[in-house]
């Protein structure tokens, strides 16, 4: 009965520019930084792009998961990043010839974790949030005992690749933009993507429409695990080695960029370009606070407040009947 009233509120333009805001916000902070704080405009943009790559990569996986509908979220991303980076470094063993094998091993690791998450959700019938939270604790333990005393440098070629530029733009950023375009096509122009969007709007209806809801859920959690693992391996190359706490900041930032980017946390509506806006915005903010001399504590406080504010703005009021 409330259908028509809902549609009226959806036509409201307020819902349109949410992901644009994130770009505008990023732009504003960027301008602020080099006008007031005296940062190099170009250097800051390149740095923002280089770091955003990793946030966007895990953000893509998180976005697909969140789009599956209420309660779907992958909290095992940080632990997966930590474990996969350790696996990648160990397999690569600092040798350029083993880079592909290392990446492959990390991916397999991420895929297994995604599958395990789905298995918990399906078999134990528990909310994904609890499933991925408890699996993240197990992955952490595996990571600690596997990576104990691991001090392997990444292969030189991998590090070089993560820093290389093409016409001044980080190659990794170009690759990730390409990945985002692929993700966007997958989301809107494949049966898998349509199923994700349909499931997020109404899981029962998706089943009755003949869509393979369960296979899609499995694929989505696997995708999220795989992207987190890929991110972990590349991040290890970027930061000169793996560490278990490396993924920690990606728990919130992966969700933050999804929310800031205009993807609906209630599911069913996703936005790929917004991920970039959100990632750039978060990076710019934290750089600005850094240059202004604020420590990590205040940065966290700010990020937290921004997330809550963004989510509060994008939410909708649904009256009880």
């Amino acid at each position: 009965m409330t259908d028509q009233t809902l549609s009226a509120s959806r036509l409201n333009i307020r819902n349109l520019p949410v992901w644009l805001w994130s770009f505008l916000g990023a732009l504003l902070v960027w301008v602020l930084s080099f006008t007031i704080a005296g940062q190099g405009a170009e250097g800051m943009l390149v740095a923002a792009l280089s770091f955003s790559v990793f946030t966007v990569m895990v953000g893509l996986g998180q976005m697909f998961v969140i789009t599956l509908g209420p309660g779907n979220v992958d909290l095992s991303i940080p632990a997966t990043i930590g474990l996969a980076s350790a696996v990648a470094m160990k397999v690569m063993d600092g040798q350029n010839g083993l880079i592909l094998w290392g990446l492959l091993a990390a991916l397999v690791c991420g895929i297994l974790i995604g599958g395990f998450n789905y298995l918990l959700i399906r078999l134990l019938r528990i909310p994904p949030i609890v499933a991925t939270l408890s699996s993240s604790f197990i992955i952490q333990s595996v990571g600690i005992s596997y990576g104990r005393g691991l001090q392997i440098k990444p292969p030189a070629a991998l590090s070089d690749f993560t820093f290389s530029r093409f016409l001044g733009v980080p190659v990794l950023a170009i690759a990730t933009i390409a990945l985002s375009i692929v993700a966007s096509v997958v989301l809107h122009r494949t049966i898998y993507g349509r199923t994700v969007l349909a499931t997020g709007q109404n899981m029962r209806a998706a089943r009755f429409a003949g869509l393979s809801v369960e296979r899609t859920r499995l694929l989505t959690y696997v995708l999220s695990g795989a992207l987190a693992a890929l991110c972990g391996a590349l991040l290890a190359g970027f930061s000169g080695g793996s560490s278990l706490s490396m993924g920690r900041e990606y728990l919130l930032s992966s969700i933050a960029v999804v929310v800031l980017g205009g993807t609906s946390v209630a599911g069913g509506r996703a936005n790929v370009p917004g991920l970039w806006g959100g990632a750039l915005f978060l990076f710019m903010i934290s750089t600005l606070l850094n240059t202004a001399g604020f420590g990590s504590g205040l940065r966290d406080v700010f990020t937290g407040v921004i997330i809550v504010a963004a989510i509060a703005i994008t939410g909708t009021r649904q009256p009880l009947r």
């Binding site: 259908d3 809902l6 959806r10 049966i191 349509r194 969007l197 349909a198 709007q201 109404n202 029962r204 209806a205 998706a206 009755f208 429409a209 003949g210 869509l211 609906s264 069913g268 509506r269």
Partner: peptide, 27 residues
């Protein structure tokens, strides 16, 4: 194929267009 009676609970994808809602059965 299935025609739901409880449209809101079992049938409609509220964020989609009419065309998307029709075509989803024949992807």
């Amino acid at each position: 194929s299935f025609v739901a009676g409880d449209r809101q609970a079992d049938g409609i994808f509220p964020l989609w267009s009419i065309a998307n809602n029709v075509a989803v059965g024949s992807l």
